[in-house]
Design a binder for these strands. Structure first.
Lengths: 209, 209
DNA sequence: GCTTAAATTATACACTTGCATAATTGCGAG
DNA sequence: CTCGCAATTATGCAAGTGTATAATTTAAGC
């Protein structure tokens, strides 16, 4: 009559995803130290032994979680790309405004991102992930910048667009961080206007209304 | 004949400083989880009991460490202010170049900064510290921007300088982060040139050679 | 419906963690 | 020189950590 906990079998993908989600939740709420095996299992509605069944070690789970986080962050900004207008200038303007306002601006995402950044200097796998996702985002921005410059009839040689993409990316990153850290300091319109005008200055062109 | 460890008495300030420094070293090397009481004591050349003697709890020590870190980060960029030229344009140019190159760009500092950022969303004390230091840095930048605009004979109304300071600050933050995370991706001259040209575009002026 | 392999739970273990408390030692005051 | 007290070390402890392994249960195949 030993009443053992009832459970349901889930597919491997679903369980891995659930464990990763639970891990990110734990880290977001209490930092890396809060992401203990037991806390993660509890949040995933599972007993701790199961973690070991899907991830050889806790470190593996953490790594998988960070990888998932990174791709979801870039995916979030890419998702809206289709909804943007076709006109190159309006397209870039929309992309910029999107990057510095909710839901892309988000304290939880920011906290998780900071946790990842901390690992980059000392974990080569994390460094590789960061490098890839950073360059992917920057390349996309560079293409939109090049298109916008051409649409405005300005020269868009590779050296120039690279430089502008690096600066533009940094600008968006910095604004995203501050808006996420101090949400009450910046009104939504405020942020959009700051980012938009900065990009107009940077590229020396004017976005359509 | 129990040979107890020999030790030297240090003043309270010295010991607190040493413990804080050891704490930051631990966090920089292995993240918050590596900053255990024992690891900190070992690095400070002290036994763990002493920590409790100077800090009621580990959390107190961590908080003190983050506070020290933040003020030292802003102090680092302020220290060089006197060495900058008097001419407003050259002064701003030097400030910008300084912010995106070593020793301000530094993986260790970046790692520690990320650790702090992670605490901001869930720790009100850390949030207050961040807000203060962020605004202090931004205000300093705003003043230099206003001076540069005036020197170039351009209008420098408060709304404009505020907007430019926010964008300029974000730009410097973003470049600082990337240069610190991926040191091999950017040559020193490269970074300086990118930051300088971006600021010239942003303010619509030209820095002296 | 059995059988069976895999998914899941349960339990145990060795080790680390932060903290408390007692035992000593350095070092200035007299 | 020695006394006394605060600074420091040493030791212990209960709780939490990751991981290993055995015991069970689910559900699919025949």
């Amino acid at each position: 009559m030993t009443s053992r906990r009832a459970y349901k079998r889930e597919g491997e993908e679903a369980r891995r995803a659930a464990l990763i989600a639970a891990t990110l939740d734990c880290i977001a709420e209490g930092g890396p130290q809060a992401a203990t095996v037991r806390a993660i299992a509890l949040r995933a509605g599972v007993t701790q032994g199961l973690i070991r069944h899907y991830f050889a070690t806790k470190e593996d789970l953490i790594a998988a979680a960070h990888e998932t986080l990174m791709s979801s962050l870039t995916a979030a900004s890419a998702a809206r790309l289709d909804e943007l207008p076709a006109d190159a200038l309006a397209r870039l303007a929309g992309f910029v405004a999107n990057a510095v306002t909710p839901p892309v601006v988000d304290p939880r995402a920011m906290s998780l991102w900071a946790a990842s950044m901390q690992l980059v200097p000392r974990d080569s796998a994390m460094r590789a992930v960061h490098e890839t996702t950073y360059l992917a985002f920057r390349d996309r921005l560079e293409q939109m910048i090049a298109a916008a410059l051409q649409a405005a009839g300005k020269p868009a040689d590779p050296a120039t667009t690279r430089r502008l993409a690096i600066a533009g990316n940094a600008l968006l990153d910095g604004l995203w961080i501050e808006a996420s850290l101090l949400p009450d300091h910046f009104a939504k319109d405020d942020m959009t206007s700051i980012a938009t005008k900065a990009f107009e200055s940077l590229l020396d062109l004017k976005f359509p209304e």
